[in-house]
């Protein structure tokens, strides 16, 4: 019962809190996605309160030494400057801007967001990202 109330409260509160960070209006998909991440983040760490734009930027920039490749990898390796085009490190293919302010087609499909968080976090961190990391990353992207 208590659980249920918290969920309902979260559901109604997030639309009020999140837009404070956002420069670009959150897509309905991104909004629902963040609400889910909040619930997950709370499960991962009961003391969880907010996602952080700063932590999102830190994750984007942080270099991780790859255990097999012996080379530093980061989200920036491919996405470069998030408000302009990036380039895939291995294939050279141009990647459209990651920031929704520069690319309206960003974060509009749940299955796509899921798939690329999984692939890219494994590529860079050699593990999946936590819900907290994903939430930080998303609100940072919408703050640009």
């Amino acid at each position: 019962m208590k659980h249920c109330l918290i969920l309902i409260a979260l559901f109604f509160l997030t639309p009020l809190v999140i837009p404070l960070f956002a420069k670009t209006k959150l897509t309905p998909v991104a909004m629902a996605y963040l609400n889910n991440l909040k619930v997950e983040a709370k499960k991962e760490d009961p003391s969880f309160q907010y996602f952080s734009v700063q932590k999102g930027q830190d994750l984007f920039q942080k270099e991780f030494m790859h255990s097999r490749k012996k080379k530093n990898r980061s989200c920036q390796t491919c996405h470069k400057k998030p408000t302009s085009t990036g380039r895939h490190e291995r294939t050279g293919k141009v990647i459209q801007p990651l920031a929704p302010s520069a690319n309206r087609k960003r974060f509009v499909k749940k299955s796509k967001i899921n798939k690329w968080f999984k692939r890219n976090c494994k590529w860079v961190l050699e593990r999946e990202c936590t819900a907290k990391e994903k939430g930080d990353f998303l609100i940072w992207a919408f703050s640009l």
Partner: peptide, 8 residues
């Protein structure tokens, strides 16, 4: 940098 690979 603008090419990178035969794959491109």
């Amino acid at each position: 940098k603008s090419i990178r690979s035969w794959a491109n």
